[in-house]
Amino acid sequence: MRLLHTMLRVASLDRSLAFYTDVLGMRLLRRQDYPEGRFTLAFVGYGDEADHTVLELTHNWDTDHYELGTAYGHIAIETADIVATCDAVRARGGKVVREPGPMKHGTTVIAFVEDPDGYKIEFIQR
């Protein structure tokens, strides 16, 4: 068994695709509209689905806002240079919500950014 994908519901697929591809550097792997169900699925990631875990962005055509709830945490991405990664996110218009530094009660260096829907993405220094 292996983890295939994590699904996020997004209010604007175009805005979210721009964030995940242009800001975070993922690739759009596939996209399909389901007119009868009034939704679109787009899969993004850093590698092919056959070998990597990816994100499924689900856009329900009749929904323009979601409540994130209190159970959701974040998605984690490993990076070789967390400061340069955060600088690149900022330069591309992304929002860094926690600057790089050691995690509370630990030594792992982390940072957080936020996607257009408010989902948190944690960067972890390799």
Rank of each mutant, 00 (worst) to 15 (best):
D117P: 02
T63P: 08
F39I: 08
D14N: 09
M103R: 14
Y46I: 03
R9A: 14
R38Y: 13
T58Y: 09
L8S: 07
D81K: 03
A84T: 07
L4H: 13
D22Q: 15
T79C: 09
E56N: 03
T63V: 15
D22E: 14
F43A: 04
D62A: 11
G101V: 02
T6Q: 11
V54C: 07
H105N: 15
W61L: 08
S12L: 01
G47D: 11
A91I: 05
E114L: 06
G69W: 09
N60K: 07
E49W: 02
F123R: 00
T108V: 15
T108Q: 13
Y66D: 05
T79R: 05
D64S: 13
I77R: 00
P116W: 08
G94V: 02
F123D: 06
T107R: 14
R38W: 14
D22G: 13
V83K: 06
T79Y: 03
L57M: 05
H59M: 02
G118T: 03
L8W: 08
L17A: 11
D64N: 13
H105I: 12
G101P: 00
G106S: 14
V96F: 00
L4Q: 15
R9W: 12
H74L: 03
D48Q: 09
D117S: 09
F19P: 01
A71H: 09
V54T: 12
E67D: 15
A18I: 07
V83P: 00
Y66Q: 04
D62C: 10
Y20P: 00
A80E: 12
R15C: 10
K104P: 12
D22P: 07
H74R: 03
Y46M: 05
H5K: 04
R31G: 03
A88V: 11
P35R: 07
M103D: 11
E99S: 00
G101M: 00
T6I: 13
G118H: 01
V54K: 06
D48M: 05
F19Y: 11
V23I: 01
Y66W: 09
I124M: 08
L17D: 12
T40P: 00
Q125H: 14
R9H: 14
L68I: 08
V54D: 06
S12E: 10
T63L: 12
R98G: 04
Y119V: 03
L29I: 09
Y20R: 00
D87V: 04
D115V: 02
I75E: 01
E56K: 05
M103H: 10
P102C: 10
Q32P: 00
T70C: 09
L13R: 01
A80T: 13
I121A: 01
Q125S: 12
Y72E: 03
H52N: 15
V83C: 01
G101D: 03
W61T: 06
G93V: 06
